[in-house]
Amino acid sequence: MKKMSEHIVIWEGLWNLCEDNGLHGQRCMPYNSLPILPQDLQLITCVSNINNEEKIKMVASGLFLGVVLLLLVPVSWVTHNVILGIANPLIISQWKPEMGASLYLG
């Protein structure tokens, strides 16, 4: 039996349920099935017979490559223009552009 003085804290995570009574530590258990989860946290399958983990990896890889290309184009364009400005002898040295930290990070 549990004493009335014990205080149990229940934490509900995305994929598991944990309880902490302070004396015996924390005990976690995964949810038994997806219907327990709210609808916005359930994974909806788009294509059957393919592992969900592999689908997520493929979509994440595609998004990553798309973002890299979207970042690479403007950074390369600005870097090209700065390099042309540095090499241009007609520009006064006071007004010559320089490579900034943001271009190096990009």
Rank of each mutant, 00 (worst) to 15 (best):
N52T: 09
S33M: 05
P38D: 04
G62K: 02
M58C: 06
L23N: 14
S61M: 05
W15S: 09
L63T: 01
L43Q: 06
L37A: 13
D40F: 00
L34H: 10
A60Y: 14
C28G: 13
N52Y: 05
M29H: 12
P35E: 02
S33L: 03
Y31T: 04
C46Q: 08
Y31V: 00
L14A: 14
N21D: 15
Q39P: 03
C18A: 11
G62H: 04
L63E: 01
S33F: 02
S61T: 04
N21L: 03
C18K: 08
M29T: 15
S33I: 12
N32E: 10
C46W: 14
N51G: 03
I50K: 03
C46M: 07
L43R: 03
E12A: 04
E53G: 15
M58H: 14
A60I: 01
V47A: 08
I56G: 07
W15L: 06
P30E: 06
S61L: 12
N16P: 04
L43A: 07
R27P: 01
C28K: 12
G62L: 06
N51R: 06
K57S: 15
N16W: 08
N52M: 12
L37M: 10
L43D: 07
N49V: 13
P35M: 00
H24N: 13
S61C: 12
C46N: 07
N52C: 09
S33H: 09
G13I: 03
K55G: 02
K55R: 11
I50C: 09
Q26I: 15
I56T: 08
G13N: 13
V59N: 03
E53S: 14
H24K: 11
Q42K: 03
N16A: 10
I36W: 04
E54K: 10
W11V: 13
E53Y: 08
Y31C: 02
H24F: 12
S33P: 03
T45W: 00
L34P: 00
T45S: 07
D40W: 05
L14E: 12
P35T: 03
D40G: 02
C28A: 11
L43V: 13
Q39A: 14
D20K: 02
H24R: 11
C28T: 15
G22E: 08
L14V: 09
L37H: 11
E19V: 15
G13C: 09
E54N: 10
Y31A: 02
N16Q: 13
T45M: 04
G13E: 10
V47Q: 11
L37V: 13
T45V: 14
H24M: 05
K55T: 01
K55E: 13
L63A: 10
S33Y: 04
G25H: 03
E53L: 15
L17K: 01
S61N: 05
Q26F: 06
H24L: 09
D20Y: 07
L23G: 12
D20H: 01
